[in-house]
């Protein structure tokens, strides 16, 4: 049976916690298909240092190395035993078939990488927009894949389990330019949002707490600019932030969380600074003007009062 080793850098454990919520397959079903060598939260018998020694002396071959959390080579900020996460990764990088960055921290650096007093915090192969993190951008594991990024703060469990199973089954995974599985991250979190009708007719949500209105215009929603299938593969099997009425904060993107004012759309003289992906601002403003002129009466009522 193939095996999997899970290590953590600067992390909140959120990706582990999210993975426990997996349903298709369940967490424990995944680890019937692949042996879990070590996980810092669940291994009570195994010791990471012992596992590392066995790998180092080639007594143990690792197939999947999963990294949760941002990495740093500064001892003051992170240690596992006597090693930094960066030292452990340098030891392992050429010995494993695949390295999976689980979550946005390991993928792009995320919140830990915004700490200004330690500029060394980074993702594995990216640091925000910058290509190359702990490993250079041309680094590839034995399998020929670069670090496979499953971003999201946290990642959705299905994105992870399905990636692992696809690789176990020998399927080829196409990656996008940020090394995310393309077939997951080709969708925008906007796709499938139950507020799409409000988006199309430019019915703007002005405040929180309503089922009606699109959150894109005033309330900071990043749905039309964020690569994530959050409204296709639902969270906890039932919902998503935008369905509940919370704006998408773009947490699967490489530039999260560099933005400010998550609950407010950046506008200049009332015009949105950013427009949905794939459309020019000119075209977007034109279509907005037209949509606003023709009203869809249904969308201007409380849902409970519609025909």
């Amino acid at each position: 049976m193939k095996n999997l080793l899970w290590i953590q850098g600067l992390s909140c454990n959120g990706n582990t916690q999210s993975l426990l919520n997996a349903e298709n397959p369940y967490f424990y079903e995944l680890f019937q298909k692949v042996e879990l060598l070590y996980h810092p939260s669940f291994s009570y018998r195994e010791n990471l240092q012992t596992v590392l020694k066995r790998i180092d002396s080639d007594k143990l071959k690792v197939n999947f190395l999963v990294v949760e959390g941002a990495v740093t080579s500064d001892m003051k900020f992170h240690r596992t035993g006597n090693y930094t996460i960066a030292q452990i990764l340098q030891k392992l990088k050429d010995k494993v078939d695949y390295i999976i960055a689980a979550g946005n921290c390991a993928s792009f650096g995320n919140i830990p990488a915004t700490l200004s007093c330690n500029p060394d915090v980074t993702g594995l192969q990216f640091r925000f927009t910058q290509k190359g993190g702990l490993f250079p951008s041309d680094f590839k594991t034995k399998s020929g894949y670069p670090i496979i990024n499953i971003p999201g703060c946290p990642m959705h469990p299905a994105w992870f389990t399905q990636t692992i199973i696809a690789l176990l089954e020998g399927r080829k995974i196409v990656l996008d330019s940020f090394n995310r599985p393309k077939e997951l991250f080709m969708y925008l979190s906007h796709d499938g949002c139950i507020r799409n009708e409000y988006f199309e007719w430019k019915v703007e949500g002005e405040e929180f707490g309503h089922k009606e209105g699109c959150l894109f215009y005033n309330l900071g929603c990043r749905g039309p600019m964020t690569h994530a299938p959050c409204n296709k593969i639902l969270w906890n099997g039932i919902s998503s932030k935008t369905r509940a009425g919370m704006p998408c904060i773009g947490c699967t993107e490489f530039d999260f969380p560099l933005r400010r004012n998550y609950f407010e759309t950046k506008k200049n003289i009332g015009i949105p600074e950013e427009v949905p992906l794939g459309v020019t601002k000119r075209a977007y403003l034109t279509i907005t003007g037209v949509a606003k002129t023709f009203k869809n009466e249904r969308l201007n009522k409380k849902l409970e009062e519609t025909d």
Partner: peptide
């Protein structure tokens, strides 16, 4: 609304947005 003057309004929106940006 702006239906028959859309081009002018759109261009002015772009102009004002850019200036403020």
């Amino acid at each position: 609304g702006f239906l028959c003057v859309q081009e002018v309004v759109t261009e002015l929106m772009l102009f004002l947005e850019e200036g403020a940006r």
